[in-house]
Design a protein around this nucleic acid. Structure first.
Lengths: 349, 349
DNA sequence: TTGTAAGCGTTATCAA
DNA sequence: TTGATAACGCTTACAA
């Protein structure tokens, strides 16, 4: 029979080894003031020698923090969430915090109260809201009322009293559209994102403003509904390419739909980019492995997750002073990734 | 100023409301024997009425379990891990357990001891090993020595004394190769998987056995090294297609490499599937959105994650009786997904 | 700057 | 079948 697992090292073992009171060890662990450097040194050595790591459970039980932060999502795009998670995870791990994913049905009648209930039951110290959860006024108000620290990712509009991380979606879409026009495209179609997604609306807006800026009338026949899914992109593209005068370029509000556009185009015998240019948004992993590789907007998703976690941890750790809503925002840069799915507009037939 | 967050409901609140001792509530929570149905009923009502949920931290601190299970990985393919995670997550959530991802560098000198150290520090109740971590004899032995419950996912060979979930990789590759031969292909190339990945070796073996079964000599010029990454697939394909007599079909050991093959083929002007058939393995999300959609083996990854968690929880929860290694295995079915990247062999030039 | 005492909300142990 | 009491390993007060 295998040996039973031994009793874990505790703070008392460390204290004894270092020759100090256990409270002193606790102070070192929490970076509290009032410990002489040499005492600190002794304690740290003992910690290392014993390979000690404090019991999270005990810290949570005794302290006022749970070291848990929630990542609230309700997106069709799991890839986006996954990357936000990666970014947030790393930042939180360093601070000893854990991230738990929590699905929210933003269409449900009582989202806000059920979210609050989950937060209470799990004792989360704070939450990160991703679109489209970040778009809900109702949820936001509930969070404020319950005094739950929170950070928004890509909210539909910047709010002065709420911490958030964002990227200029409108301007990115403006730039992409301008780039397509600079290639000579005049009939540029747009496939919209998920209707509840505020950032998606900003992308549409950027597209329209870019057209206007060059005096091109936006044409409702060239603007299709979408929901961020592959199939929606494929279906919209088929309709667009069956138009009497089809577009020479299609700009989809995300990459997954752009991949759908590529497949539909191939299926209808359009060669990309010579007969049709295609652009996406997000630069997800498979954007670079489609055929042809997709021109898109690189959105630093993982970095935004990291930033959101950073802002949230700031709020949580400085909880004392900030009964008033100290809020700050982080703005991220996008990048136009020009690959092989876009090219000069075909010369008029 | 917002109201402070209220004191959470505790087991004592429930006990008072139900008119019983708090220990009785504890018994109900843990499904222990010796509680009359009517007492149970009273307690459950009180729990529901107060929206009570027990403090994980307190349970961990007082009990012998941490409710934490580790998912150990060291794969180039994050998609695989992500799906194992999804499957395991759901199963664990229902049982009140949490899953934490832990990266292992299987190439490091002292993997085993560093893994044991992490397990101790986090107090994990058990671990799930994914390939190639599951391939390490050294790690396995350390786990047994330390009496840590564990389950293997797709180990290189079935072991009678270790719990595992698996799929017949050899036979799946055999079937895929046979399918390609049934289309008239005789020169079928194979791109190998990650060298440390036992299941990858089984795929190669299945491929070779299928060829043999039809009396086709396997040709080392048609077998390329790989590592499961897109680029490796693309490079191997370029070499293969520049052969004096190139293959008419390429079977890659996973989908990501198969996507690389598609891109290389497009780049060299091969049309798929009329000039070249391409097959993958795994059926990851983007297998169905490549052009053409990829023929592949659907591996029920999430279900395998679920199964692994199920086996592990069984071990953990019945810890009393099973000092001896009670082990069980779950076998999963694969599915040949025939899509558009494969077709009849081109007639001889 | 350091140490002491109390208590966090459970499970485990033993008694009723 | 139930209930009282003692841990569990820490943090938070407060004292020295």
């Amino acid at each position: 029979m295998a040996p039973a697992r031994r009793r874990p090292i505790t703070i008392h073992d460390v204290a004894k080894k270092a020759g100090v009171a256990f409270k002193t060890v606790s102070r070192v662990l929490n970076n509290e003031a009032n410990v002489t450097p040499e005492t600190q040194e002794k304690v740290r050595k003992a910690i290392k020698a014993l390979d000690y790591s404090p019991s999270l459970a005990a810290r949570v039980l005794a302290g006022s923090r749970s070291f848990l932060i929630g990542l609230l999502y309700d997106t069709p795009s799991s890839y986006y969430i996954h990357n936000i998670q990666i970014g947030a995870l790393e930042r939180c791990r360093k601070a000893g915090f854990h991230v738990i994913l929590e699905h929210c049905n933003t269409e449900a009648r009582n989202v806000a109260s059920s979210i609050i209930s989950v937060i209470k039951n799990t004792r989360m110290d704070g939450v990160i809201l991703t679109p489209p959860v970040a778009d809900s006024r109702e949820i936001l108000e509930a969070l404020v009322a319950e005094n739950v620290p929170h950070v928004l990712v890509s909210p539909p509009e910047l709010q002065h009293d709420v911490s958030c991380v964002h990227m200029d979606n409108r301007r990115a879409a403006f730039d992409m559209t301008s780039y397509l026009m600079s290639l000579g495209h005049k009939r540029i179609a747009f496939i919209k994102g998920h209707p509840r997604h505020g950032a998606a609306r900003l992308r549409l807006q950027g597209y329209m403003e870019a057209l206007e800026s060059k005096g091109i009338q936006s044409n409702s026949a060239l603007i299709k509904e979408g929901n961020f899914r592959f199939r929606a992109g494929a279906e919209a593209a088929e309709q667009l390419l069956h138009l009497k005068v089809p577009p020479t370029a299609i700009f989809a509000a995300n990459d997954e739909m752009a991949a759908g556009v590529l497949t539909a185009a191939h299926g209808l015998g359009y060669s990309v980019p010579s007969a049709l240019s295609v652009a996406g948004f997000d630069d997800i992993f498979y954007a670079s492995i489609t055929w042809p590789a997709l021109t898109t907007i690189r959105q630093p998703i993982a970095e935004m997750g990291d930033g959101a976690a950073e802002l949230l941890l700031e709020q949580i750790l400085s909880k004392k002073a900030s009964a008033s809503g100290v809020s700050s925002s982080l703005s991220f840069k996008y990048e136009l990734k020009i690959r092989n799915s876009t090219g000069p507009a075909p010369s008029k037939a």
